[in-house]
Write a protein that binds this DNA or RNA. Structure first.
Length: 271
DNA sequence: CTTTACGCCTGACGGC
DNA sequence: TGCCGTCAGGCGTAAA
């Protein structure tokens, strides 16, 4: 489900509620996620204090006194902070009970997410070590994209969604950024000129910023830390708008599979 | 090395 | 009313 704006929305929602809290108990109802949840979590976490909630790519990092809890929400995961008395529902796989009668609850129907404890520096963890730059970092730019894309024959949309190139851009925001930049998603990455990569880098930043400001995109089931939806779906220009009029030129928006993912674009405005 | 296809898993939806 | 195929905000792996 979640791309960078949704993860950042969750981070901002839970950070003030859990920072400084102490873990009292961990309940793993179903540890069968993308990687099995280690049973040692229930032994290690109680008594530990959550110092900060950070985000790297689409991962949340709960930095604690003696290590870090790495959380990924896959396609369908959500994290909420609830009163400890609220009973769990279907797919509420893990509860982290905190001081102050609050519970951090992980729900993930499809179980593509993961929850990993590491005592080492999480940014060097194998899950995170190979990730590309953050889209809001100074390392990310049109020049950077241009350089990385030379001799690459992949579709530019797949290139943009490659987390080793730049992190945080998933299927929704890739379509949106390419529309805003006026680039056809099936164009080979290595054949796109430098000036167009400058437009693309700017579009990525703008689309992600606006989506964060709107609290993320809720198409089906995204919910923030309070269980509420995000409102960026109202501002989506092309995603999930197959057959609707392009907001720029009025021609019908098209949908094609690119790299096994549905890709929305205007073939008149995007070249 | 790069590129592509598929599987992981559950639920919702549309067609018959 | 089922039942069956398809699809869904991600990612790791295998094969070519």
């Amino acid at each position: 489900m979640p791309e960078l704006p949704e993860i950042e929305t969750i981070r901002r929602g839970i950070a003030p509620l859990v920072t400084g809290s102490t873990v009292e108990q961990v309940i793993v109802r179903d540890g069968r996620l993308r990687q099995p949840v280690s049973p040692e979590l229930a032994q290690v976490l109680p008594g530990i204090r959550i110092e900060a909630v950070e985000r790297r790519a689409k991962y949340l990092l709960l930095r604690c006194t003696s290590g870090t809890l790495i959380v990924h929400l896959g396609m369908s995961g959500s994290l909420r902070v609830l009163s400890s008395t609220i009973p769990p529902q279907a797919h509420d796989h893990v509860d982290i009970a905190l001081s102050g009668n609050r519970t951090l609850r992980l729900r993930d129907p499809r179980r593509f997410g993961l929850l990993v404890w590491t005592a080492e520096e999480p940014l060097r963890h194998p899950l995170l070590a190979g990730l590309g730059p953050e889209p809001f970092s100074s390392e990310f730019s049109g020049d950077y994209l241009f350089a990385r894309s030379r001799r690459r024959s992949v579709a530019i949309k797949s290139f943009l969604m490659d987390q080793r190139i730049v992190v945080g851009v998933g299927n929704i925001y890739a379509s949106e950024a390419l529309f805003q930049a006026g680039i056809a998603p099936q164009r080979r990455a290595g054949e796109v000129e430098c000036s167009r990569y400058h437009r693309l880098a700017a579009a990525v930043g703008e689309v992600l910023s606006k989506a964060i400001a709107a609290g993320g995109t809720t198409l089906r089931d995204f919910q923030n830390a309070e269980g509420k939806p995000g409102y960026f779906a109202l501002q989506l220009q092309v995603y999930d708008r197959d057959g609707e009029a392009c907001p720029r030129c009025g021609e019908a928006i098209q949908c094609e599979q690119i790299g096994q993912r549905s890709s929305y674009f205007c073939s008149h405005c995007q070249r």
